[in-house]
């Protein structure tokens, strides 16, 4: 574990120096603060509006950060040949992947935490209460972000960065669709579409912005199980990414 954590910290330091990451984070924060300035649909709906759009913003932020953080890591390492001395001697391919992933996941966690705090500040500034489920909901969005990060790493081992981003966004969109919604894209091939949908992850488990915005009490067990589902899917995607990476030649 020590090699992985050392490499993760190395990755963290490296990523924090990238302007892209700061750019995405600043845009998200500005968007969140902009929310506080929009009147919403009247005083009674204001909190709901801020929560609904704030959590949506965090989710999109998690997606953008996942792409911004991870899409270019491996291709860049490969192009600059910095991956060679690392994999030849101190690290195995698995340790390399985990180190890079954990480093990026730490940046994402920090960004989501800042986003959550920003949202809380906006609610307070508008004289609104902070729902108890806001923090767990952000944690769930973070799990979604980590899952997307694993997806981006998976794509990065066999596609180029310009292709990685649209593929990840496509997966993000399709994974949000309900089974029936997905089948309706091609109603003529119901069986095939159902099978195809079942192959995709079900990211709707992370969507609890509506109930939170509407003040619906969410059972604690739901947060735990949704996080478990997300982390399990993340582990699955990482194992797939590693299998692809292990089969790749480092020319």
């Amino acid at each position: 574990m020590k090699p992985v954590m050392t490499f993760a910290l190395m990755t963290l330091r490296n990523l924090l120096r990238r302007r892209t990451i700061w750019g995405i984070s600043i845009v998200i924060l500005l968007a969140l603060f902009g929310l506080g300035q929009i009147p919403g649909y009247g005083i009674s709906n204001e909190g709901r509006f801020i929560l609904d759009f704030g959590l949506f913003g965090l989710e999109i932020g998690a997606l953008l950060l996942a792409i911004g953080l991870a899409a270019n890591i491996y291709p860049r390492d490969k192009e600059q040949k910095t991956v060679m001395p690392l994999i030849a001697v101190p690290l195995s391919r698995g340790q390399y992947l985990m180190g890079r992933f954990i480093g990026a996941a730490m940046v994402q966690a920090a960004a989501m935490l800042v986003g959550c705090i920003g949202l809380m500040v906006i609610l307070l500034m508008n004289g609104l209460n902070i729902p108890v489920d806001l923090f767990p909901a952000t944690c769930l969005l973070l799990v979604e972000g980590w899952f997307l990060l694993a997806v981006v790493f998976f794509f990065s081992f066999w596609t180029s960065p310009p292709l990685n981003a649209p593929l990840t966004v496509l997966l993000f969109i399709l994974s949000q669709m309900s089974v029936s919604g997905f089948i309706n894209i091609l109603p003529g091939a119901q069986g095939f579409m159902r099978f195809l949908r079942l192959l995709l992850p079900h990211m709707d488990v992370f969507h609890i912005k509506d109930p939170i915005a509407h003040g619906v009490g969410i059972p604690g067990i739901y947060f735990l199980l949704a996080a478990l589902y997300g982390l399990a899917y993340m582990a699955f995607m990482l194992s797939l990414a590693l299998a692809v990476f292990r089969s790749r030649d480092l020319k």
């Binding site: 020590k2 490296n14 120096r17 001697v89 101190p90």
Partner: peptide, 23 residues
């Protein structure tokens, strides 16, 4: 390696420290 390249934000001492920790 031939034509080695390393993440250039680090110093040799930092790199040595990280490499020794990784190994």
């Amino acid at each position: 390696p031939e034509n080695p390249d390393y993440e250039d934000i680090f110093t040799p001492l930092e790199f040595m420290t990280m490499f020794s920790s990784m190994r």
